[in-house]
Design a binder for these strands. Structure first.
Lengths: 255, 255
DNA sequence: ACCTGAACACCGTTCAAGT
DNA sequence: ACCTGAACACCGTTCAAGT
């Protein structure tokens, strides 16, 4: 359950001192609902059950309140998602721009973003299609823009790059989380790495067995199509985007 | 509703001949359900009401049957989504590889993909995180791989590029469709273009009004951050990816 | 073989009524 | 001011029963 619910209480029973952690509803003076508590509980629930595990109802249940009570603090589920994303964004540190080293700095921020999504399963789904308008998200946007522009990238290229790169990382994380969720639901596996290898193996076999006359390249390069884990694919994508940006920055020099 | 439901019928009432188009259930010899009819109806419904407008129940209603009947032809909603995506994929023509011109050919295929998503609102959401395993999707993967490899791109770079570029286009389309859906739901606007300009305007104002000391770059480049429509941003992204690929192909020469 | 009604276990959101 | 129960209008999926 939520981090806020646990309290310790000490009883005296003759010579014995009993110290218990209570988390049953009856025992505590019901804490007031706040946005903070709601977001805390949503993050716990999301980490445990994935994006679809967080409903206004399950969240109310976790907070031991009625679902309607949540709407006194949060406009709707979309706003809740925004608050959750903003919270995780605020965990990320963006470095001071080092103009000599902008390309590597950008890559590192984007790698950190993926790690952040990974640390909080379900969040990538919530972040898809979200524009940063809150403190946390804006800080990251500010930091990435700063790295680009202090590094000499033209403003228009920098702005579009930040947008596109963030979208890309989010999409990679979302795909990963879909597969992770599929594993959790399907059970049968408890090792994620092993599961991925299984999927890749089956996929490679499937590609390899297609009619070779109509799909010569898919069958011929089945190995390459299924190669690499999430990190390798992210790294490849970051290489494309960043080395592309170095080139594009020239073309957009005047914008 | 679906294209299949309308029939004309002629009655004789004394001297008058009445010709009606019936689409009420009672009048027609109920057509058998098939996968084809189900996918047809799902596409119509999705175009009209977006991704969330297609539920197994609303779909059954549109087909004038019970929701359980659908499960005789389609394993679950996920399979339905796959069939819909595969159907739209089969609308796309992939060109014969022209090795001199591989970069432009790739961009054109990816532009066509975005057009396809746009022509069928709601599909990008369904396609997110989907691996092509059916005829239609595989054809596109085959075609893109062929263009890359015949153009001299190393196999591993080609394979990862196809994956990443498809993900990118899908994510761009998904973001667009979220905004479009938001407009449809919110009503008040009936011109999509005007709506986008409104959103961009408000966003630019919001960015511009942030505390300039903490967000110097976001406030300073508010115009660039909100500039450009979907096409310009896609084009920029394709430039990054494809020019990045030309560079990466060298580094992966041996793989 | 194919289809159906009814059920099960869920959603997000609203609102009059309570403390 | 804050919280609640109950309702409204939905979901995906299953299954015994019908034709």
């Amino acid at each position: 359950m939520g981090a806020v619910e646990k309290r310790t209480k000490t009883f005296r029973a003759g010579p014995v001192r009993i110290r218990v952690t209570t988390d049953d509803a009856a025992a505590r003076p019901k804490e007031r609902l706040t946005r903070e508590r709601i977001v805390d509980a949503a993050m716990d629930l999301m980490a445990e059950k994935g994006y679809d595990g967080v409903s206004m109802r399950s969240l109310a249940r976790a907070l031991d309140t009625g679902q309607a009570s949540l709407y006194a603090h949060v406009a709707n589920k979309e706003e809740l998602d925004q608050l959750v994303i903003d919270r995780i964004c605020s965990e990320l540190d963006v470095p001071e721009p080092d103009p000599e080293n902008w390309a590597e700095q950008l890559k590192q921020v984007l790698r950190d973003c993926l790690e952040l999504y990974r640390a909080h399963p379900g969040t990538a789904r919530a972040a898809m299609g979200m524009i940063p308008t809150q403190e946390g998200g804006l800080r990251i946007a500010e930091g990435m823009l700063a790295i680009c522009i202090r590094g000499g990238v033209s403003p228009q290229a920098a702005a579009w790059f930040c947008d596109i790169a963030a979208l890309f990382v989010c999409a990679v994380a979302y795909e990963e989380q879909i597969w992770t969720q599929r594993m959790v639901d399907g059970a049968g596996h408890d090792d994620l790495h092993e599961f991925h290898e299984d999927v890749d193996g089956q996929l490679m076999a499937a590609f390899g067995q297609l009619p070779a006359d109509r799909f010569p390249f898919v069958t011929g390069y089945a190995r390459e199509l299924t190669a690499g884990d999430g990190d390798e694919r992210l790294e490849f994508g970051l290489d494309l985007l960043v080395s592309g940006l170095e080139a594009a920055s020239e073309r957009y020099r005047d914008r």
